[in-house]
């Protein structure tokens, strides 16, 4: 038929999908989430997971963070054995915890303890977003509150690295109450002259941002970290308006007066050391 000659069938070129373009061999290589450049994982690790090309700060596990901040062999862990129960009897919650415990080799999404930064002792809590997205339930609240209490007893400064999606849904109102518990602990610590430094890393949102993360004597953040109370999608739906690209980034929060400073990961240890040094003889109204 003549019609066949004018067939509407178009020819398509096959281009690799976004997904396959991004696939890199697991373990050996790592693609930068900022500029899509591919690096040897070793190389990334050496630069503390900051992209050598664009400076994008990738997530670190709690232990990677501890290793790069503390003097070798100085870190002593507290309350390692505290882990989540299932207070509401929430379906499948225990299985999810068990899976993340296996995956991360942590018992909860925060590691607490004390250690030395260039010879100065400090108490410490570092959250790990790979464990149930760093969400805060009873176990996390308890560990952080205890760490603050220990800092108070031992007259140590307290530094917290936050990384959390917010409250842990599966523990309902008990998660919410951890915001109060940790905040009261901070008040008691602060009234005794304790120094608290909060460093917000990607992401710090919801109940964690609306409690201890925002009430340090100094509030810092890593470049590009997402920091905010409500989720972007919820805000967009509520106000029916598209939000700017930099909304709720560390830089946005700095511009709006919500942060003291945005600190590059490579400068973190020296900045914390300087700050600890400047407070060494102050505080502690025992």
């Amino acid at each position: 038929m003549l019609k066949d000659l004018f067939s509407k069938r178009r020819k398509y070129a096959s281009i690799p999908s976004e997904q396959s373009k991004m696939d890199v061999p697991e373990g050996l290589m790592q693609k930068c989430n900022g500029c899509n450049k591919i690096y040897y994982r070793k190389e990334m690790k050496k630069s503390l997971y900051v992209c050598p090309n664009c400076g994008h700060h990738h997530s670190m596990t709690a232990w990677e963070r501890i290793d790069c901040l503390f003097d070798e062999g100085s870190f002593q862990e507290w309350d390692k054995g505290i882990t989540s129960g299932n207070p509401l009897g929430f379906p499948e919650y225990e299985a999810k915890i068990a899976k993340d415990r296996e995956k991360t080799e942590l018992n909860e999404g925060v590691v607490t303890g004390k250690g030395m930064i260039d010879g100065i002792s400090t108490a410490f809590a570092v959250m790990d977003s790979t464990f149930r997205m760093g969400s805060m339930g009873s176990a996390m609240g308890e560990k952080i509150a205890r760490a603050i209490e220990n800092a108070k007893e031992e007259s140590l400064p307290f530094i917290i690295f936050t990384a959390s999606g917010g409250a842990r849904m599966q523990e309902g109102v008990l998660s919410l109450m951890q915001m109060a518990k940790t905040s009261i602990a901070i008040k008691r610590f602060s009234d005794k002259g304790g120094l608290m430094i909060s460093v917000m890393t990607h992401p710090t949102t919801g109940g964690v941002s609306a409690s201890f993360a925002s009430i340090g004597d100094y509030n810092f953040a890593e470049p590009g970290a997402l920091i905010g109370f409500a989720g972007r999608r919820i805000i967009e739906q509520t106000i029916r308006e598209k939000l700017p690209d930099d909304f709720q980034t560390a830089e946005f929060q700095l511009k709006h007066g919500q942060l003291d400073k945005v600190i590059h990961r490579h400068d973190m240890k020296t900045t914390l050391f300087k700050l600890l040094e400047m407070h060494q003889n102050g505080g502690d109204k025992k």
């Binding site: 915001m179 409690s211 009430i215 905010g228 109370f229 409500a230 106000i239 909304f247 709006h256 919500q258």
Partner: peptide, 15 residues
């Protein structure tokens, strides 16, 4: 959950 609320520090105000 609004833009202005975030800009003025909703998290800090609650905390």
């Amino acid at each position: 959950p609004g833009k202005a609320a975030e800009e003025r520090g909703q998290s800090e105000a609650i905390a």
